[in-house]
Amino acid sequence: MHQPQKGHMEAVMRIIRYLKGTTDQGITFKENKQLEIKGFTNADWGGAKDNRRSTAGYFTMVGGNLVTWRSKKQKVVALSSAEAEFRGIVRGITEVLWLKKLLTEFGFPPTIATEIMCDNKAAIQISENPVQHDRTKHIEIDRNFIKEKIDTGIIKLPFIRSKLQLADVLTKAVPWSHLTTCLSKLGFGNPTTQPEGECDKWEAKLSGFELSTVQPATQRHGLVLDALCGSYGYPDPAYLRSGGVSHKSDVYSFDNGDWTFLSKLVKSHYEKGTLNDIIHPGLLNQMDSQALNVFSEVAYCCLNDQRAQRPSIERVIFALEQALKHQLSRVNSERQVEGISTNYWKLS
């Protein structure tokens, strides 16, 4: 950099801001009972504006955990998107072969073909078709290498939709929602953050409800496709049926937590008007009746299986604030009778 310009300084500052803003980010490795290898490969086509070379990248996962990844500009110009994908697939396959050999040396030889996920149908069809194509003569070695690994059962090359292709983030700029979704599936985030709905110390906390806090109000009716995940009973039932989530999914999970059986029991008694029968008498005597009514009504609405019938997170918070006001009003009245200052009960 003999003659640094303003553009270079802006680029450096952007890198520094990124590094400073992601100091708490990392990859979480979870224990699994299998060591299946899976790869995601992708390539853009002529993405480099200066020389029109393509960028290819791959992720490889073992037992559902991310272990290796790479993103690199190809050395030659690709004449088609299929050609760019071919070269990307070859790099992904060589990485998978190395991982298979490594696991075998550790005493865990893979027994099934490894899936290399690709979102280019043309590349998949040419790889599986033994007929020579005029348009792929110049990449015949790559094509035959891929075909050989498919025929011997070492790899499989299934098609995956572009919106589910995790390697997209390695080859091009993607929307923020897609980026965060891919990073979540890859186990990338803050390793010290406790999973949603889990709290060892039984402390009330709100965390992980990204859609309700980040998604703009103008986009709240849209769905964000994601892989099915979460503790049993915690995710939105509509999410489990369709694979799509919205901010109303956060509302359901916020109210339900992991208490699947308990939530069904409460809903049943609420509908029958016998909710008081399952509340401990000592606790019931401390509750304000209006606060209990507001709280139970909003909880019941949050657990509705139909998303459209659930309240927004703003309405939930407003209702909880009203329930709190009713309860504090009763508490303050009782304290005044006992001669204790109400300032003790004011929220800080």
Score class of each variant (00 low, 15 high):
Y344H: 06
Q132I: 06
G208F: 04
S80V: 07
N276C: 13
D236F: 12
N285K: 15
N129L: 10
K6S: 03
Q286Y: 00
Y232W: 05
R330W: 01
A113K: 11
G88V: 05
C199D: 15
D119L: 13
K121E: 05
P175A: 11
L186H: 04
L19H: 03
Q309V: 15
R17E: 00
E271N: 15
V337E: 06
R53W: 06
I112W: 02
K205Y: 08
V298L: 07
F145C: 08
L157Y: 05
V12Q: 05
L262F: 12
I141E: 12
A122G: 11
I126T: 09
Q219I: 08
H133Q: 07
T114I: 14
R143G: 08
V245I: 15
Q194L: 13
K264S: 05
T152K: 12
P191R: 01
R87D: 00
S80R: 10
F40V: 03
E95M: 06
E140V: 14
R310E: 03
R135K: 14
G339V: 07
L328Y: 01
C302I: 02
T342Y: 07
D168V: 12
N144G: 11
S249C: 04
R330F: 11
F295I: 01
V96K: 01
D288N: 07
I126A: 10
Y252W: 15
L97Y: 03
G153A: 10
A82P: 00
E95K: 09
V77E: 11
E210Y: 09
A167I: 01
H8R: 02
N129C: 10
A78C: 07
N332E: 05
P237D: 06
N332L: 10
M287G: 08
Y58A: 11
R220C: 14
D288I: 00
W176V: 14
Q5V: 09
S177R: 04
S249R: 04
I313W: 03
